[in-house]
Amino acid sequence: MTWADFWALTATLNGRATEANCHRLAKRLSRRPLPDITAFAEHHAEALYRLDQEQFGSLPVIGMTTETGGPFPQSGDSFLYARCAVVAAGRQTWENALADPAEFAPYTSLDYDGERLLYIPDEAYELATGKEWHRGTRYCYESFSNKEGWPHLRT
């Protein structure tokens, strides 16, 4: 599977990682050969990993403030879900966000929740095989795992 194939499949989401959109994508993916499901998972993890950078993770949550009125920081989970929302929005949005943190910022809003995107490869595999998928990917998409993106966290 090429990046073009990955983004073409992601376009099934119509820009949002809703339950219905994600299920539709998982069904479409489940009809493809198992190596495509694995390749989709790899591209998916890498796309999230590449967004795992301090310049994005340090942006405040839009529409929220601390008790003192200051910017409300993203948690590790909210940052992951914001990255998922960017990927769900499609290739152009993802590329724009990588080039400019201002393009990423709107996805920190509580109006965007891309969490459901995380489960698409697992759902597709289960639909295709009837079995649960215990998989790993080359890239870890958990927040703060991209050491190059978080220079001060390097050990």
Results as ranks from 00 to 15, higher is better:
residue 21 N to D: 12
residue 21 N to Q: 13
residue 21 N to R: 11
residue 21 N to L: 05
residue 22 C to W: 07
residue 22 C to A: 13
residue 22 C to I: 08
residue 22 C to D: 08
residue 22 C to K: 07
residue 23 H to Y: 09
residue 23 H to K: 12
residue 23 H to Q: 13
residue 23 H to P: 00
residue 24 R to T: 13
residue 24 R to K: 14
residue 24 R to I: 02
residue 24 R to N: 14
residue 24 R to F: 04
residue 24 R to D: 15
residue 24 R to E: 12
residue 25 L to A: 05
residue 25 L to I: 05
residue 25 L to K: 04
residue 26 A to K: 01
residue 26 A to Q: 01
residue 26 A to T: 02
residue 26 A to H: 01
residue 26 A to G: 02
residue 27 K to N: 08
residue 27 K to A: 11
residue 27 K to Q: 15
residue 28 R to N: 01
residue 28 R to C: 00
residue 28 R to F: 00
residue 28 R to M: 09
residue 29 L to Y: 07
residue 29 L to T: 06
residue 29 L to D: 06
residue 30 S to A: 15
residue 30 S to T: 03
residue 30 S to H: 04
residue 30 S to M: 04
residue 31 R to E: 15
residue 31 R to P: 00
residue 31 R to W: 07
residue 32 R to I: 01
residue 32 R to T: 10
residue 32 R to A: 12
residue 33 P to E: 12
residue 33 P to N: 11
residue 33 P to W: 08
residue 33 P to Y: 06
residue 34 L to V: 13
residue 34 L to F: 05
residue 34 L to C: 07
residue 34 L to I: 15
residue 34 L to M: 12
residue 35 P to Y: 10
residue 36 D to H: 11
residue 36 D to V: 02
residue 36 D to E: 14
residue 36 D to G: 00
residue 37 I to H: 04
residue 37 I to F: 05
residue 37 I to R: 04
residue 37 I to M: 06
residue 38 T to H: 13
residue 38 T to N: 09
residue 39 A to N: 10
residue 39 A to G: 12
residue 39 A to C: 11
residue 39 A to Y: 02
residue 39 A to Q: 15
residue 39 A to D: 13
residue 39 A to L: 12
residue 40 F to C: 09
residue 40 F to W: 15
residue 40 F to L: 10
residue 40 F to T: 07
residue 40 F to A: 08
residue 40 F to M: 10
residue 41 A to D: 12
residue 41 A to I: 05
residue 41 A to S: 14
residue 41 A to T: 04
residue 41 A to L: 06
residue 42 E to R: 10
residue 42 E to L: 11
residue 42 E to G: 12
residue 42 E to K: 11
residue 42 E to Q: 15
residue 43 H to E: 10
residue 43 H to Y: 14
residue 43 H to S: 10
residue 43 H to T: 09
residue 44 H to D: 05
residue 44 H to I: 01
residue 44 H to P: 01
residue 44 H to L: 06
residue 44 H to R: 06
residue 45 A to T: 02
residue 45 A to P: 01
residue 45 A to K: 02
residue 45 A to V: 03
residue 45 A to L: 03
residue 45 A to Y: 02
residue 45 A to S: 14
residue 46 E to P: 00
residue 46 E to A: 07
residue 46 E to S: 03
residue 46 E to N: 11
residue 46 E to G: 01
residue 46 E to Q: 14
residue 47 A to T: 12
residue 47 A to H: 07
residue 47 A to D: 08
residue 47 A to F: 08
residue 47 A to L: 08
residue 47 A to K: 09
residue 48 L to E: 07
residue 48 L to Q: 11
residue 48 L to P: 02
residue 48 L to Y: 04
residue 49 Y to H: 15
residue 49 Y to A: 05
residue 49 Y to I: 02
residue 49 Y to D: 03
residue 49 Y to C: 04
residue 50 R to V: 12
residue 50 R to Q: 15
residue 50 R to A: 10
residue 50 R to P: 00
residue 50 R to Y: 00
residue 50 R to S: 05
residue 50 R to T: 10
residue 51 L to G: 01
residue 51 L to M: 05
residue 51 L to I: 03
residue 51 L to Q: 03
residue 52 D to E: 07
residue 53 Q to S: 09
residue 53 Q to L: 12
residue 53 Q to V: 09
residue 53 Q to N: 09
residue 53 Q to I: 02
residue 53 Q to G: 03
residue 53 Q to D: 09
residue 54 E to I: 03
residue 54 E to P: 00
residue 54 E to R: 13
residue 55 Q to S: 13
residue 55 Q to E: 14
residue 56 F to Q: 05
residue 56 F to T: 03
residue 56 F to P: 02
residue 56 F to V: 03
